[in-house]
Structures are given as C-alpha cells and as structure tokens.
Design a protein around this nucleic acid. Structure first.
Lengths: 156, 156
DNA sequence: CCATTTCTTTAAGTTACTTATTTAAACGTC
DNA sequence: GACGTTTAAATAAGTAACTTAAAGAAATGG
C-alpha cells in the first residue's frame, strides 16, 4: 500500500526536520552581523514566532505565551533573549502594572523582517516548487498532522 | 497572494509541530506500562528512528548515527536509553571489536512495533484524511522543506 | 614496532522547554 | 479599610536532546 510507505517516510522525516529547522543558515548569520546584532545571536523558530506576533503590535508576556503555545516562563525566556539582542523591550502596562508589554525597539522592525524572511526561505522554496493544488494539500496535511499530535487528539 | 499566506502559516506552524511531536499520548504510556517497560519511559522521535532502523537488522552505533542524522555521541545516548528500558542490547562485532552492534532484546520486536504504531497514528490520521493526490503532495512538500532547511540548501 | 586512523564512549557545555515557587499588583468580600 | 484570594511575570530548579572535544581501545599500514 502506497499510503503505508508515505506514513513510514513521514515518521522518519519528522525528527530530521526538527533537528534542521532550528539551525541558522550562513546568509542569515551574515545579515544579523551587519545589522549590529551579536554574531552569536541564535534566533530560534520560537523567537521567530514571537517576532511575528509582535509585528502586529505590543503584546503581554502572557499573550505571547498563549499565541506561541508555551508556558509563561518559556515565553519569559524567549523575550529575555530578544531583549538581550536589543530587538525588543519591556514596559509595564499603565492600566495594570502586573502586565509587562513587549514591543519592538525602535528601528528594529526591518531587522526582524529580514530575519523572518530568511527563516521563510526554505518554506518558500518548497511551496514554490509545488503547484497551487499541491501547496494547499501540503499545508492542509501539515495542519492535520499538527492537530493530530496535539492534546485534544487522543481517543479512549 | 495565497502563497504568501500559506508560507506564513507554515512558519508559525513549524515550532508548534516540533513541540508537540515529542510528547507521548496516554494510550502509548498505558501500552508501555503493560509491556513491563518503566512507566516514565520517554520514547522520543529520535528513539523511534533507532527502533525503525533496527527492525531491519542489527546496526553499529556509527551506522545508526548516520541513518538518523545525528552525531555518534548522540546515537550513543539514544541507544543508552533504549538499553536502559530493556528494549535493545549491545554486543561487539567479532570481526572488529571496536564496533558495537545494537540489536533488539529477544521478544521486544512486538513492543517496538506497538510503539511505532502509536507514533504513527497522528500521521496516519492526517494522511488518511487526504486524497491520494493530496497525500503525495503533502509528503513531497515535507521532503522539499526538510531539504530546504538542510546544510546543502544554502546559496551564496 | 610505531604512527595513524577508526569506533565508541565520556566529559563538558548549550538550548528549549517544563513545573514549582516567589513577588507584586489587582480584585472581591466583609 | 482590611484581608484573603487571584492574577501576571519572573526566578529557581530540573529534564531532554543535542553538540564538540577528548579519551581509550582496536585496527591498519609502512
């Protein structure tokens, strides 16, 4: 059965994808250096998620945690690193001082955009190698699979 | 452009998939316990890769490292854990005593098969929700993307 | 015999999370 | 207003899954 083979292929492919997806490429490292961010800065997929969320406006740490799908301390850590790299800053919400709002440091939008572009490139290439139908099926399958690994997917 | 949206969707989806893909479901934990493997055993996607490779016969640690795509010490660790859980064992190759061959502990094939089945389930469900065309496109896209994140994919 | 290479493991370190706990702020009830 | 409870973020402590460097043993070739 062809499907059996496809399933086995995905099973072997997933860990490999996971290992590769977090590594920056040389183009990206060069770009980061040119923009004055420390050369050893590591922008992980989790960081990219944060940057994307913030491109829509300031967010509290709790909101970021929820959007990204991690615990609040994990969100704190992700933000810590971006603050360290001078890309984002924290400030308190006047309306409720418990809340920490995270926003881009002025002038860093463009840097973040470049970083996001670089991280998109392999995805872009993959999708641009597919027909419209194929691309939609690819993303559909990816969504279905992600949902399938999620907590609501278990059956008794 | 529809493709832009698809690309952005994948960019946000990947970290979420990565976080979810390593977590065992409750069915799997129950099965593991029933088979006499410690209840806290965590069988990661990397372990699954090892189990799949070994289902084709004994392998040296170096071969496993290569097949799975990790460093030799990482393969050592993966094997360590499976040995700990009583699923595989090490023995030296008579022809070259430097080489450590890894093989299933007698009677553990079936346990491993069950574990692999459980790990396959979300993938199976996703693929079975797609038409034949869609399923092929999904795996094609996944492969292309994985290659795109790999070391040979960078361009000057 | 000896220098070099190969194979695996150990050692040391990093990253990306998690849960538990702490601190400060806000809320609701009396 | 006082006080108990809840909320938000950060800190503390720990785990898993890697990496590179180095060590130890075995094999190879001159």
């Amino acid at each position: 059965m062809d499907r059996e083979q496809l399933i086995d292929e995905v099973l072997m492919l997933l860990p490999a994808l996971m290992r590769l997806v977090g590594k920056p490429g040389p183009v990206e490292m060069g770009e980061i250096a040119r923009r004055g961010i420390p050369v050893d800065a590591h922008i992980s997929p989790g960081h990219v998620q944060i940057l994307i969320s913030l491109s829509r406006g300031p967010r509290s740490v709790g909101q970021l945690a929820e959007t990204v799908g991690v615990s609040p301390p994990a969100a704190t850590q992700l933000v810590d690193k971006l603050v360290e790299h001078g890309m984002v800053e924290r400030r308190h919400d006047h309306a409720d001082r418990r809340v920490v709002l995270v926003d881009y440091v002025p002038g860093m939008h463009e840097v973040a955009r470049r970083i996001m572009e670089d991280r998109r490139r392999p995805i872009e290439r993959a999708i641009n190698s597919l027909t419209d139908e194929e691309a939609r099926a690819f993303v559909k399958g990816l969504k279905l699979m992600t949902e399938g690994f999620g907590p609501t997917a278990s059956e008794s």
